[in-house]
Design a protein around this nucleic acid. Structure first.
Length: 586
DNA sequence: GCCGTTTTCGGCCCGACTGTTTTCAGTCG
């Protein structure tokens, strides 16, 4: 690590491991929690925490005190943390992975170590195979079966962490199941909660909450849903099931009168809820899914805003509930409104059969019109993206003729001559300025040479930002969830340049992209840049991907006025003309 | 280990379910 600052993820991993090993060793619980909190805080901090620690500023972050700051500085300077090295001498590191298995925790991991000498998952698998598990107290047949299953799965798909499924798949599934439950028990109030409601880009479980006086009927309906593989647990108020797609569903049920408390509770995040309950305790109150208990008894809230109001807080949108300062903000007054789906007035990123879309211009326009949009940008690929049938100048001009005809036929929506033009490997734009000048809207994107080093790829995207003809940078990092990491584009420099030139940065709503992600979008906004939200639609249904982009924007804290396509086309066109005039064109 | 409308010590969020227990500990969210 000589010369290089440790990344936030590296620092967080070490703190998390330290916390795990301390827990196994039997350290005071709150000390363990302090390490975990610190790990989460470091992981979610956008700036380099190592640099902050070296400057003595890491303690500005919540959950980081003098002790942990010095440990971060130590890691930065020496490449190691003595306290971590020391505990590794005392507690085998492999026990942390064992304790991480479902149904196993620190206590049982220690029992395995003590009674069988098992110190890692491989040895545990051997012990299970040898039938030695029965020698350990606390391990009955059910625990053994669960372990056998997990170890088999682990062997099949590799040792790495549990499966997460993308928002774009999980949210529709969750909504389908919620609808099924509503149909099964008329009158029941059923909502999707948890990390899905907060708009996380991928989730490892689906949380659903319900209010009904017939809880058993609702639980039966979930158990009978065709998506459900088997019931994992079932009590009076909570139930968990496994689905065929591998994601777990948790259903929590309560009475209608406290639905607000239950929804708030199940929406989380865990860190947000903990912070909220701590705040409540300081006021002599106790918050749970059942209500808010105080000296005068327990008050139940039918809606969520009531929960926050009872704690002296303004309402907090689910997407912001990550303990990232939202509670403090809500203490001092109403939060600024976040962009919402109905604010979106048009789509700036779509494809047709002219390149790699599945529908023609007319069909896409009809679909956009059905969504109530005032405009649709037909932004097919440019010539260099041959794989996607990119258009050359000649085909562009023929497409413009079709768009002119489309506009001549209708007055209910404006069809924009647009392009998603490639930013070539050397930073040039795939079309010349003369052609670019003819478009109504230009999105420029990187699709190739994504493995360039940070400096090259950043300069390449910056070159496009500086072009007066480019309105938006499409999916700025080129990442594909689960397939390809973000290219190392320097978001700080990109945002600064975009703020200066007025070039917009896209949040691409395609579920596999979600690019910019919410953290990068937040940084871009902080630098003064503005955004577009695009569906990158290749079909009519895919226009609906805009909702995922809106969720990302909300997690970034974007106001409606910070998202360009909340404006009607005439306003957008006027702003664009202003940019071009400022650049000395027209 | 962090932190302060309980300020530099003594607290630290709340509840559900399972399995193995013989009344509850461990784990999870």
């Amino acid at each position: 690590m000589a010369g290089e600052l440790p990344t936030n993820a590296e620092i967080a991993d070490r703190f998390a491991l330290l916390g795990d090993l301390l827990e196994i060793e039997g350290a005071v619980r709150h000390r363990v929690l302090a390490y975990r909190r610190a790990a989460a805080r470091v992981r979610s901090t956008p700036a380099s925490v190592a640099a902050m620690a070296v400057a003595g500023r890491a303690t500005d972050l919540p959950d980081i005190g003098a002790t942990l700051q010095s440990k971060i500085a130590e890691l930065t300077e020496t490449g190691t943390i003595a306290a971590l090295d020391a505990i590794r001498e005392r507690v085998p590191e492999g026990l942390a992975a064992i304790a991480g298995l479902e149904g196993i925790g620190p206590k049982r991991a220690v029992a395995l170590w003590r009674d069988l000498g098992v110190t890692d998952v491989e040895q545990l698998a051997q012990a299970v195979a040898d039938g030695r598990l029965g020698e350990v107290s606390g391990f009955g047949p059910a625990t053994r079966d669960r372990l056998v299953e997990q170890l088999a799965q682990r062997a099949a798909r590799g040792a790495d962490h549990a499966e997460r499924i993308p928002l774009g798949r999980a949210l529709p599934l969750a909504e389908e199941i919620a609808a099924d439950l509503r149909a099964a028990v008329p009158g029941a109030r059923v909502e999707v909660a948890g990390s899905l409601r907060r708009g996380r880009e991928s989730v490892h479980d689906i949380d659903i909450v319900a209010a009904t006086d017939r809880p058993a009927a609702l639980q039966d309906a979930l158990a009978a849903n065709t998506a459900v593989e088997r019931v994992l647990s079932r009590g009076d108020a909570a139930m968990a099931v496994a689905t065929h797609v591998g994601v777990r569903i948790e259903l929590a049920i309560g009475p209608p009168g406290s639905f607000g408390n239950l929804l708030q509770h199940a929406t989380g995040s865990a860190a947000h809820n903990v912070r909220l309950r701590e705040l409540a305790v300081r006021r002599g109150l106790s918050v749970s899914q059942h209500g808010i208990a105080g000296p005068e008894g327990t008050a139940a809230m039918a809606d969520e805003d009531g929960v926050y109001a009872a704690l002296g807080l303004a309402p907090i949108p689910p997407e912001l509930r990550e303990d990232a300062g939202e509670i403090e903000a809500a203490q001092s007054g109403p939060l600024e409104p976040l962009v919402a789906l109905p604010d979106i007035r048009g789509e700036l990123h779509s494809h047709t059969t002219w390149s790699d879309g599945t529908l023609g211009v007319t069909a896409m326009v009809e679909a956009a019109r059905a969504l109530g949009y005032g405009y649709l940008a037909i932004s097919d690929h440019s010539r260099s993206l041959a794989m996607a049938g990119g258009l050359d100048a000649d085909r562009v001009r023929r497409q413009w003729e079709e768009i002119d005809e489309e506009n001549a036929r209708r007055s209910d929506i404006t069809v924009l001559k647009a392009t998603e033009v490639d930013i070539l490997a050397d930073g040039r734009i795939d079309f010349d300025d003369e052609l670019l000048a003819g478009f109504d809207w230009v999105t420029a994107s990187i699709h190739s040479a994504l493995t360039q080093d940070a400096e090259r790829i950043t300069r390449r995207v910056l070159a496009a930002v500086e072009s007066p003809f480019v309105d938006t940078i499409g999916h700025p990092t080129g990442r594909m969830l689960g397939r390809r990491d973000a290219a190392p584009v320097d978001i700080g420099r990109l945002a600064e340049a975009a703020a200066r030139t007025g070039t917009l940065l896209e949040i691409n709503g395609q579920p596999r992209r979600l690019d910019l992600d919410s953290q990068m979008a937040r940084r871009a906004l902080a630098a003064g840049a503005r955004l577009t939200i695009g569906a990158d639609a290749h079909s009519a249904e895919a226009l609906g991907y805009i909702r995922f982009g809106v969720l990302v924007a909300r997690r970034a804290g974007a106001r409606p006025d910070q998202v360009a396509n909340t404006a009607e086309w005439p306003a957008l066109a006027a702003a664009r003309a202003g940019r071009l005039r400022a650049a000395g064109l027209y």
